[in-house]
Design a protein around this nucleic acid. Structure first.
Lengths: 223, 223
DNA sequence: CATCCGAAATGACCGGTGGTCATTTCGCGA
DNA sequence: TCGCGAAATGACCACCGGTCATTTCGGATG
């Protein structure tokens, strides 16, 4: 064959003006989900939003799962990493973690995906990881502790994001209260003096615990 | 009347007295999932396993979601709480937490359900909570700290169960390595001297951090 | 200008899903 | 003996994600 861009990165022929693209699909998906929720998010509804036949989507996307992966990577840009570089490391981590949890509490169905999604093909997610890793490394966390620390905090965040969607009466023991006296007492004995949601209290407790453990791994700026 | 001569002589005459029941459905569901995985678990396949028409299930169950909730409660009995009452509190919690994570790593699709499932109607789950609460209370954890502590540890376990299903190369930065030097170095710099899986290293790190925080809330037996 | 390439959109179509419903099948108690 | 009612049935539904042969049409080529 000649060099006329058969498989060239330069598009040989660009006949139709890209009605569909990763960015457009992702944006439309996010808009649709924000309005309708994940329950109403189907390939048909997404196509309808884009003024396109459902099957046209499959010229740009290999599966619905892939759309959700794109969406996940986009959602990750909403996580607040602004503390890194401008604040003490622990303040930055707190701001990041709370924001991270809040964002994915609003997108809980994405949690099982992001937990197993390779960073390849998720550039925004990787960008966030780089920011966190650099921030922690700069704070003196040794290289070999970086990944375990990040994964542990992240796992806690994912679980907490799911938990944040639990109904308020999740621990109502109802007519089984007799068979679980200690637990029932614990539910009743929660500190309700601050107006904080129970899920937030638990999140603070766990986050501070992890923060302390990360702090304990730190080495001074010199060797 | 065309239904006999089906190999099974006692096919007919079974309509009364519990051909289907919560226990039977749950057991069959677990067996089916153990063999086929969650991908192959449908109401049709479940009904086939039970030698019953799919619609017959709906006389005993209101939705597939409910079947999964029953299953979740049953799966909870596989979590090892044997340490409570026979071992020091921290040993008991460690055994429980590792077992809890392992069980739900094998049943990851149930994690988003159990995270928001009210304990009412999940008696086995409640039994476990009671055991944990009593164990911690007996160790001196004050009542008002019980729920936050349990929820925090549980959230961490759920997130870690999802994480345990991540592919080994999840952090492979590939051709984006240049743009994420610190993170890439961290991935390469993981301590591989022990043969432990990265997910296990992270889980240990987080669990010990939470354990230390729980220990810090303890009060002496008096007061 | 006439031609043709090929990426992208189309719409019919597929197998399978969870779920509903009118109907039938009996064991059992009156 | 007979009818009640729990339980199983099978046809049926709307909708899902996904496939495929076909059509459209902008733009590069000569």
């Amino acid at each position: 064959m000649t060099d006329d861009a058969r498989g060239e990165p330069r598009r040989a022929g660009r006949p139709l003006e890209s009605v569909l693209s990763r960015a457009r699909i992702t944006t439309a998906a996010l808009a649709l989900i924000t309005i309708e929720g994940y329950g109403g998010f189907t390939m048909s509804s997404l196509a309808r939003t884009l003024q396109v036949a459902p099957s046209a989507l499959y010229n740009h996307v290999s599966s619905k799962h892939e759309v959700l992966q794109w969406l996940e990577d986009h959602v990750m840009t909403m996580v607040d990493v602004s503390g890194f570089g401008s604040e003490p490391w622990d303040v930055a981590v707190r701001r990041w973690a709370w924001s991270y949890r809040d964002v994915f509490a609003r997108h809980a169905p994405l949690v099982p995906l992001v937990a197993v999604l390779p960073v390849t093909g998720a550039p925004e997610t990787l960008r966030m990881y780089e920011t966190i890793a650099a921030g922690l490394a700069g704070a003196g966390v040794p290289v070999e502790s970086l990944i375990p620390a990040i994964v542990a905090v992240e796992s806690f965040i994912f679980g907490s994001a799911l938990d944040a969607n639990a109904p308020a009466d999740i621990f109502d023991t109802g007519d089984l209260a007799d068979s679980s006296p200690t637990f029932t007492a614990a539910v009743l004995g929660q500190d309700r003096s601050t107006g904080e949601r129970p899920a937030d209290v638990a999140f603070r407790f766990g986050l501070e615990a992890l923060l302390a453990a990360v702090a304990a791994t730190r080495r001074g700026p010199d060797a």
